[in-house]
Design a binder for these strands. Structure first.
Lengths: 158, 158
DNA sequence: CGAATTAGTGGGTCGGCACCCACTATAGGG
DNA sequence: CCCTATAGTGGGTGCCGACCCACTAATTCG
């Protein structure tokens, strides 16, 4: 062969790149999977982080509330909570007022873990948003937040 | 209970909303799945659209090139191409110069389809970006494009 | 006290996506 | 001509996220 090409990479179709939703989807997916990778190294998944964050932000609450807040399936939450409890990141106690309920709260270990996870998330974010300067990042965050709020009634998902 | 509450929906944890990558991921996912839904009504998937777009943008080419360009698995592409060919949206002909190759090109039907799909994609985009005015949308597109380019060496995915 | 309701759990399905391997056909250099 | 590399195909696997159902325990209402 004439010469072995590394053949860097071909361009994507302009008609796709022209769609903000395409970029959103692609970038979002990349960011998500990068973070997921890092969490996986610790045997964690994205939901674990989301649950910890919800507990840290809003304090102890019943699984029921987490279900509503995070739009996670009750059954799936049970599994996540199981795992987190087993690892000592949260504690589950029967609510004495209504003993059907299980009140979940973060432990100190959980809070410490969350801090680390958050640092990792920010590290990923720095990688992904590398081409933007601080001002642009703020502008992006602002736009995204508006979009997110605007479409208030979204269902589900992490 | 004081009053029966419709309890519209609870807020998400601020510590997550504060991460641009979280928003990116969530919004991107929503956009992607909305479009996927619409495509599914026609029995199509996102890859079908991507392949059509690549063919329309860059003209007829071997599957090999599509594989490189779209970072799709060769085997998966074969299946997508099969389906598109069966439906008459593309034609596959053996390259006479190198008969290992199969050159793929869009048909008129394919182009017409792509136009419709693109319209659907833009409709979804309008829904998602509803809170932003045209200027802001352009700003967003610009930022996303920079981010996308910056992270040149991304692997895979739709 | 039932009967109906709610919280949580355990077990499973389903579809999509990425990935991998074995195999055929063709090309091209030594 | 042989040997290796490349193009494409077919038939898988494994993972993951979303979802669903059946079941228990506890509560509340009539």
């Amino acid at each position: 062969m004439a010469s072995v090409k590394p053949q860097p990479a071909a361009e994507l179709p302009p008609s796709l790149l022209d769609l903000s939703t395409y970029l959103l989807s692609r970038i979002g997916k990349a960011a998500r999977s990068r973070l997921a990778e890092r969490l996986a190294e610790r045997g964690l998944r994205l939901w674990d982080m989301a649950v910890l964050a919800a507990l840290a932000d809003f304090g102890p609450q019943a699984q029921r509330d987490l279900v509503r807040r995070l739009a996670i399936d009750p059954s799936d939450l049970a599994k996540v909570a199981d795992q987190l409890a087993a690892a000592g990141y949260v504690v589950r106690v029967r609510d004495q007022a209504d003993r059907r309920r299980v009140s979940v709260s973060v432990t100190d270990a959980g809070r410490a873990l969350l801090a680390e996870l958050d640092a990792q998330a920010r590290a990923v974010q720095d990688e992904v948003l590398a081409p933007l300067d601080p001002g642009e990042r703020r502008a992006l965050q602002e736009l995204l937040l508006r979009v997110h709020r605007g479409t208030g009634e979204w269902r589900g998902g992490l």
